[in-house]
């Protein structure tokens, strides 16, 4: 019995370590790439070189890295805050106050998520121009405030939230809005954390829509910068890798910061 347990454990760790190596290797390669010049990157050099300072310098001086990062942060942070609020409220509305009308609109929304973005681009573009939001970061934010994906995700997560708690709060005389914000939201931290990571990532990595909406270099986000750098006849891969590392760090930091919520159970906070 004991040996069987040890063997199972060994398998589990072997599996985890394999997944770890496969997942991390490309990241190691990106880090190595940012310290090499373009030719070495193309040739597939896997060791660290001495070009890091140089690459970063090019990135900051000739590609306006700070300005670009500021744009990306501005858009992403505004989007995350807005969309968590709007989407989770909607999901709560759909799940807790079920009614025929709302279920019908929910079905329509879900269905609309399935339309490929390419089909909507031109009408949406016309709309944004009519609103006068061309080349404006607001155009990126307002269009992603209500995320069907997040509404769907929140609703699926709210399904496991015990209704008795809501009932009990009502009996205690708490208002509906108050129940949501001071009872439901705090006890669904892991869901909000996952949603925040998702929302931040989507906004930070958004590509097609910013590409079409943003017109000037001044407004550019980090994804657009990386894309334009890599389309050259002879791409400066060392610098591109540096840009990619810089672009990836914020998401990793956010993930690190929020992952503690995945560990913490929700039971504790619900019970109190």
């Amino acid at each position: 019995m004991k040996t069987k347990k040890i063997i199972t454990r060994a398998f589990v760790y072997a599996f985890l370590i394999a997944a770890f190596v496969v997942s991390v290797f490309p990241f190691y390669w990106m880090l190595a790439g940012m310290t090499n010049n373009a030719i070495d990157v193309i040739k597939g050099k896997m060791t660290f070189g001495g070009q890091m300072i140089n690459n970063l310098k090019v990135l900051i001086t000739s590609h306006n890295l700070t300005g670009v990062l500021a744009n990306s942060f501005k858009v992403s942070i505004a989007t995350v805050i807005g969309t968590l609020l709007v989407s989770s409220m909607a999901a709560y509305g759909f799940e807790v106050y079920e009614s025929k009308g709302r279920n019908r609109s929910y079905a329509i929304i879900l269905l609309s998520m399935m339309v490929p973005f390419a089909a909507l681009m031109i009408p949406l573009f016309r709309l944004i121009v009519r609103f006068g939001l061309l080349d404006n970061h607001l155009a990126l934010i307002v269009t992603s405030l209500a995320s069907v994906f997040l509404i769907f995700f929140f609703r699926q997560s709210f399904k496991s939230f015990p209704r008795e708690i809501i009932q009990a709060a009502r009996v205690d005389g708490a208002g509906e809005i108050r129940i949501f914000f001071s009872i439901v939201v705090p006890s669904m931290k892991s869901t909000y954390a996952a949603a925040a990571i998702y929302a931040f990532m989507t906004s930070w990595n958004a590509y097609l829509w910013p590409l079409i909406i943003l017109q000037t270099d001044k407004q550019k986000t980090i994804t657009l910068l990386i894309s334009s750098m890599s389309s050259a006849y002879f791409p400066e891969y060392g610098v591109i890798m540096a840009a990619i590392v810089v672009a990836t760090l914020p998401i990793i930091i956010l993930f690190f910061a929020l992952q503690s919520y995945f560990v913490q159970g929700m039971t504790g906070s619900v019970k109190q």
């Binding site: 509305g93 079920e98 009614s99 609309s112 909507l120 009408p123 209500a146 069907v148 509404i151």
Partner: peptide
């Protein structure tokens, strides 16, 4: 309850109506 239901979903519905449903009908 019904009124609160609509309140919670209203923000999302308005935004989706403008930025998703309208372009879909158009396309």
């Amino acid at each position: 309850q019904n009124r609160y239901g609509w309140f919670f979903v209203s923000f999302a519905l308005v935004l989706l109506g403008i930025f998703l449903i309208y372009p879909i009908l158009n396309s």
